[in-house]
């Protein structure tokens, strides 16, 4: 599903944000991406949705080498990936419905189809009752659920989340992770970056660990080493 082959990312000279990462993320699995602050988690996620370009190395997503995707065709990659951010990145002056509908509207779908998909997404995150609320009028936990609903609305094959529980208390964090688990149960690959070890222990999923840009542990690390 996702393959990293000797990937390096350098923002400044002689310092690597990502250093020689070889990684394989299997289809339909649930992964935690962990490591201390500055370990390179966000950079690794940004490389997946091509917000950043690798300095060196290749990244394959759904059998496509994303280095070869031109800027104009980038939207095709982004439509395969649902992204959830720690700061939610919502349009706060619009309604919950409008926010969730964005990925569908930009694809030019019909209103009836958009209604159906938004309804499904809202049901999954348990926010049907907030559909017509202005996003700035709902709580932080609900806003994060709107962000998740928006990420799944476009029917992605991968969901990546960057510290989705970073701004939430433990109870809400568990709730949010349960939603991700539900999404994963529908066959969608989930990759969540977090530094909350308690949550990782609680959910016992596959873990990819980074330290200073290097891969410390990964369920597929040995396999990758065998390939190279």
């Amino acid at each position: 599903m996702i393959g990293f082959y000797h990937v390096y990312k350098q923002y400044v000279k002689e310092s690597y944000a990502i250093y020689d990462i070889n990684l394989s993320i299997e289809k339909g699995e649930f992964y935690f991406l962990t490591g201390a602050s500055g370990a390179g988690k966000t950079t690794l996620l940004k490389l997946i949705y091509k917000e950043e370009l690798p300095t060196k190395g290749q990244i394959l997503i759904d059998s496509v080498n994303i280095n070869l995707i031109p800027r104009k065709k980038l939207y095709k990659l982004r439509r395969k990936i649902g992204i959830v951010f720690q700061d939610f990145k919502l349009l706060y002056n619009r309604t919950v419905y409008e926010n969730i509908a964005i990925p569908l509207v930009v694809r030019g779908y019909r209103k009836s189809y958009i209604d159906k998909m938004v309804k499904n997404s809202l049901s999954l995150v348990g926010l049907n009752h907030r559909k017509n609320y202005i996003t700035s009028h709902i709580s932080g936990g609900e806003q994060q659920r709107v962000a998740i609903a928006r990420a799944i609305a476009g029917n992605p094959i991968i969901i990546i989340a960057d510290e989705p529980t970073g701004n939430l208390d433990t109870e809400l964090s568990i709730e949010i992770l349960k939603i991700f688990e539900k999404i994963n149960n529908n066959g969608i690959t989930v990759l969540i970056a977090t530094h909350d070890n308690n949550l990782i222990r609680m959910f016992s999923k596959k873990t990819i660990e980074l330290k200073q840009g290097k891969l410390i542990s990964s369920p597929t690390k040995e396999k990758q080493q065998w390939i190279y």
């Binding site: 949705y49 939207y75 439509r79 990145k89 349009l91 930009v106």
Partner: peptide, 16 residues
């Protein structure tokens, strides 16, 4: 800019 960034991340084409 924020809105444009969101649109790009959810797969809007440049022309959109």
């Amino acid at each position: 800019k924020e809105e444009i960034n969101i649109l790009q991340l959810v797969g809007a084409t440049d022309w959109y």
